[in-house]
């Protein structure tokens, strides 16, 4: 790349698109219970919105939006959300990942499962987003 900043039109266009893609990604995650969708699909869309900015604006600006030091912790947190949900169920006396045993008062087993699935989908979405961004970042930097 010769110039540090690419064409302003591209930058503007992607800045315009990015929030909508992100919003759609969140929709896909949360609406996964009722229509095709879920954590992976939504997480990919979230990553796409971040990567769009990264591609169009270069490293310096995109870091302001989403620092590349955040990716690994976020990915770990995503895994930990899933893992922690399973472990909670295990500690509450059920099998690992048995959402029916989650210690949330006032809900019966099917509803607990409903919420359990939602929680893990969030975790997945977070991990997928963070990992895809981190792969992109690593590849851009090359091997140093």
């Amino acid at each position: 790349m010769k110039k540090r900043v690419a064409s302003p039109i591209v930058l503007l266009g992607s800045r315009l698109l990015s929030p909508y893609i992100m919003l759609f990604g969140l929709y896909v995650i949360f609406h996964g219970h009722y229509s095709p969708g879920g954590g992976f699909q939504g997480g990919t869309l979230l990553a796409a919105s971040l990567l769009l900015i990264r591609i169009s604006s270069g490293r310096r600006i995109s870091r302001i939006q989403f620092s590349d030091y955040l990716t690994t912790p976020l990915a770990v947190i995503g895994v930990l959300i899933y893992f922690g949900t399973g472990l909670t169920a295990l500690l509450a006396g059920g099998y690992f990942l048995d959402y029916g045993q989650l210690p949330i008062p006032g809900l019966d087993a099917p509803d607990l499962r409903y919420w359990g699935i939602l929680i893990i989908e969030l975790g997945i979405g977070l991990t997928v987003m963070a990992v895809l961004v981190s792969i992109f970042d690593d590849m851009i930097r090359g091997e140093d």
Partner: peptide
Amino acid sequence: SDIPALIPITFLAFAVLIPLLGL
């Protein structure tokens, strides 16, 4: 009775903790 799950869980836990604590 939980051992079949605990063995992989242990590795998983440390696999995610190592990069986190590595920071």
